[in-house]
């Protein structure tokens, strides 16, 4: 694991591609547009702002970005023999795989941070009542980030295995689109990994009654942790045996 730091630092050099930074901006920017345009009867509440801004962000952007980031991180290795060169250097395959995952997780965290800033900005601009509701928003930002990690793990697993850039993304979108339906289902919602970021983001937690959106955070995290362990282990095992 001593090589992990070095592999990570090499990863940062390789990432100097402008697309990545644009992707971080995309979802929060879109959320700002929605947050500014939607209106509610009576005074605007922080909960309302989070629910409108977080809906598309949690339902579509977070799952899709998890696939885009991992696909981009593998793309330049698939092209022109990057894996070959990287893996014939003194690095363990485990540290290479882990470093890719860490970079994807950090990029997703950057998206979440920017989303938080945008959320606070929109709330302040639209004069939502009271001070920023830290107890409500911080667990939701963190929770939906954690709920995205299993998806990133699965996407990394398929992106390292398939040299095509589009195939993992197609798989990702295929699983993400049903979110719109699954979110409203109390039967499937709690177990469908792709919808967990949305559930974790929803401000109408335990007291609300909105399909699967009223699950306690604890039970949600069990599904998240379970799918993460499964996807990450499968990906790592496959990468360690990968013929390059």
């Amino acid at each position: 694991m001593r090589t992990l730091g070095r592999v990570l630092s090499a990863e940062i050099v390789k990432m100097s591609s402008r697309y990545l930074w644009l992707l971080i901006l995309a979802s929060p920017a879109f959320a700002v547009l929605i947050g500014m345009s939607q209106s509610e009867e009576g005074p605007i509440s922080w909960e309302f702002i989070l629910s409108v801004m977080g809906a598309i962000h949690g339902m579509l952007f977070l799952p899709i970005l998890s696939g885009l980031f991992t696909a981009l991180l593998c793309r330049y290795e698939h092209h022109n023999g990057g894996w070959k060169q990287l893996l014939s250097l003194p690095v363990s395959r485990g540290s290479v795989y882990l470093s890719k995952f860490i970079v994807a997780a950090v990029l997703l965290a950057a998206v979440q941070l920017l989303f938080l800033v945008c959320f606070l900005g929109v709330g302040w601009w639209r004069e939502a009542g009271g001070p920023p509701p830290w107890e409500m928003v911080l667990p939701r930002i963190l929770g939906s980030w954690l709920a995205t990690l299993p998806l990133a793990a699965l996407q990394l697993a398929v992106s390292q295995a398939w040299s095509s850039f589009a195939a993992p993304l197609a798989l990702n979108v295929t699983f993400t689109i049903p979110n719109m339906l699954v979110a409203n289902s109390t039967t499937y919602g709690p177990y469908y990994p792709w919808v967990q970021p949305l559930i974790a983001m929803s401000p109408y937690g335990a007291d609300g009654n909105f399909g699967a959106l009223n699950l306690p955070l604890e039970s949600l995290m069990i599904v998240v942790l379970g799918s993460f362990v499964l996807f990450f282990t499968a990906g790592l095992l496959s990468f360690r045996r990968k013929a390059v």
Binding site: T3, R6, A10, V13, K14, S16, G82, Q85
Partner: peptide, 24 residues
């Protein structure tokens, strides 16, 4: 190995720097 390996979006220096960081 086989055809040369490189990261096309990076300059020659950046390519070598990525490897240098691993080799220390």
């Amino acid at each position: 190995v086989e055809s040369p390996s490189y990261y096309g979006h990076l300059t020659a220096i950046q390519n070598l720097e990525a490897i240098r960081r691993i080799l220390n």
